[in-house]
């Protein structure tokens, strides 16, 4: 303690400042360490297990027309820079087809009219962006379960992958990579999981993912893939994209976005 008494206030402040700066740099290095990231990321599957155990078949809250957001913010891609997509959009997606492939007994292509003829669902739900904001919108679309029944999903399938028309950056100097997303069967068979072709009673706008966007209401906004062009049933997503199951999971975000 005598040593302590000799320390004057300025030295203490200096020490605290130096310690603070060292801590900040140290924390940034820890953040970039792959082992640390793996340990921190280990919380995510725990969240998934606990959250699902607490309400295996829970429905996301549904709202009234009066609750609709006057301005629903579009996020991520808002107009894919993709010639084939732009051509399809120019024709109102009349020649557009959704490809269903992979571990299904009857691979098939669906026009928008085909999709509209399948069992549908309309829901007014809150969209929670990973950034922190929320908007309420009304979505109508084909139940994913109906599509999986129609194409006869095989028992070996564990994930449904959504391949999209948009591309996003993959690091500072690389060309953009195609956006993709995946969900497991827990969400795929869920009553509120739909492929929306309408938003707020109108054809889905381009900014919100025309002609088709996934709604997986019990997860954050980034799971709700826009511009869905093809659906692939797989046993593992190890060989798709960066191998983590989605564009955002390949870029450091958690695959499970229920939190």
């Amino acid at each position: 303690m005598p040593i302590a008494q000799n320390l004057n206030r300025r030295a203490l402040l200096k020490m605290a400042g130096g310690l603070g700066a060292a801590l900040l740099t140290g924390c940034d290095q820890l953040t970039q360490d792959q082992t640390v990231r793996r340990i921190l990321g280990a919380a995510n599957p725990v969240d998934q297990t606990v959250q699902r155990a607490l309400g295996p078949n829970a429905l996301a809250a549904e709202f009234d027309e009066a609750d609709l957001s006057p301005k629903f913010r579009p996020n991520g891609s808002t107009d894919p820079d993709n010639a084939a997509y732009q051509a399809a959009a120019g024709q109102g997606f009349s020649d557009w087809r959704l490809n269903v492939t992979g571990l299904v007994g009857r691979p098939a292509q669906f026009s928008l009219a085909d999709l509209r003829a399948l069992p549908s669902r309309t829901q007014i739900t809150r969209h929670d962006c990973v950034e922190g904001w929320s908007c309420i919108g009304k979505w109508s679309g084909t139940r994913l379960s109906a599509l999986l029944e129609k194409t006869d999903l095989k028992p070996t399938a564990r994930y449904i992958v959504f391949h999209c028309a948009d591309a996003l950056p993959s690091g500072d100097f690389s060309p953009p990579v195609p956006y993709y997303e995946s969900i497991d069967l827990n969400d795929a068979w869920h009553e509120q999981t739909i492929l929306a072709y309408e938003m707020n009673g109108q054809d889905l706008p381009v900014a919100h993912g025309a002609p088709l966007r996934l709604r997986v209401e019990r997860q954050l906004g980034y799971k709700h893939a826009k511009y869905v062009m093809a659906i692939e049933a797989v046993e593992s997503f190890a060989n798709i994209g960066g191998g983590n199951g989605s564009y955002w999971a390949d870029n450091g975000y958690s695959w499970y976005a229920g939190i």
């Binding site: 309400g55 429905l59 809150r126 209401e217 954050l220 229920g258």
Partner: peptide, 10 residues
């Protein structure tokens, strides 16, 4: 803040 817990406990 969790959308899944919001569904589990509305």
């Amino acid at each position: 803040m969790s959308p899944r817990l919001n569904a589990d406990f509305q």
